Amino acid sequence: MGTITKALDLLDLFSSTHPEIGLGEFTRLTGRDKATVHRHLTELAENGFLEQHPLTRAYRLGPALLRLAAVREAAFPMRKLLHPIVAALAEDVGELAHASLLQGDALSPVVHADPKLHGVSVHFDESELLPLHATSSGLAVLAFGPDALRERVLARPLAHHTGQTVTDPTALKTLIVEVRKTGVARLEGAFDAEVTSQGVPLYGEGGVIGALSVAVPSIRAQPEKLAEIATRLRAAAQEASRSLGGPSPSHSRPLPHAARAAHP
């Protein structure tokens, strides 16, 4: 891991529940030398990626990220393109829908919508990175994304998020083969013990760039409802992929020869 990567990795430790982090906490979370962490934090602050609270001296995300986010959205308007599709999907199925983009070996949420038609709903945090092995969105990306990504993720230890998280590589490969057959990934209780979700890949000019998903409290996840959501999800993903400049996803897309050999 290079110096720049080590510095930028610190930014991923922030979340809606941890908007400010002190030097000591950074050191504990990373397991790195305190002096090295302090140097990285100082450099990030000097370049506007972080700023310090004037009293507590804890670090928080800086103004440079706001400017870069505006530049990104102006040049590649992902939120503008995806928001109406995600909102329409959520209204259509009556449940929370969200879209996320691939960021390294995880998914970064872009937009979500919840019609809030029920007393029991799914909590969704757009600031939380989604693991590829434990979410339906991630499983869809692993199934249809690059071979190198799949091999890299399955080769390393995978974190348990609930008692139902699948972390065994062989079991995950079996799930991936099934997703390739149906075009829709489905997981129950793998990231949130009380949530069942379904996800499909989103395509851009370079192939799979993210995923579209619908999450349902497991108490409402009857087979008929899930089947209807899957149909609407496929249609929404086709529309979104066209908007993003990619080919329409297809659950009948044939397996590459290498994948067929690896997953008989």
Rank of each mutant, 00 (worst) to 15 (best):
T27N: 06
I176D: 02
A221S: 12
A143E: 01
E128M: 13
R150T: 04
L187T: 14
K173D: 13
I176L: 15
L102P: 10
S213E: 15
V184C: 02
H257W: 08
L61R: 15
A240S: 06
M78W: 11
R220I: 00
G138T: 03
G104Y: 13
H40P: 01
G210I: 05
R39T: 09
E43F: 08
K181Q: 13
V195M: 05
A227W: 02
L117M: 10
I229C: 02
L172H: 06
K116I: 07
D147N: 03
A58G: 00
Y203R: 08
A240T: 06
A143M: 06
A262D: 12
T135N: 06
A75V: 14
A215T: 01
G94H: 11
D192M: 08
K6W: 00
A211N: 03
D105F: 07
P201D: 09
R253K: 09
D33A: 08
H40Y: 15
R234P: 01
D9E: 15
V214A: 04
H40D: 13
H38N: 12
A236Y: 06
E20P: 00
G31Q: 09
P249V: 05
A75Y: 09
V86Q: 04
A227S: 12
T167P: 05
L81H: 10
R220P: 00
G183N: 02
R232I: 00
L55G: 01
T56K: 04
G22N: 10
K6A: 14
A113H: 12
H98K: 09
A230Y: 00
E188K: 14
R28D: 14
A45N: 13
T30C: 10
L89M: 04
S15W: 06
Q164L: 13
A148N: 03
A171D: 15
L55Q: 14
L65R: 08
L255E: 14
A64T: 03
R156K: 13
K225E: 08
T231L: 13
S248P: 03
R260Q: 12
Q238M: 09
L142E: 05
I176C: 07
R32M: 15
S213N: 15
H160Y: 10
V93L: 10
L149R: 15
T56Q: 08
R39S: 13
A215V: 02
D33Q: 12
T231P: 00
F191C: 01
L212V: 02
G24D: 13
L132I: 08
P63R: 12
P217D: 08
H257I: 13
D114N: 14
V166F: 03
P157S: 10
R156Q: 15
S100L: 04
A215K: 01
D147Y: 04
A140H: 04
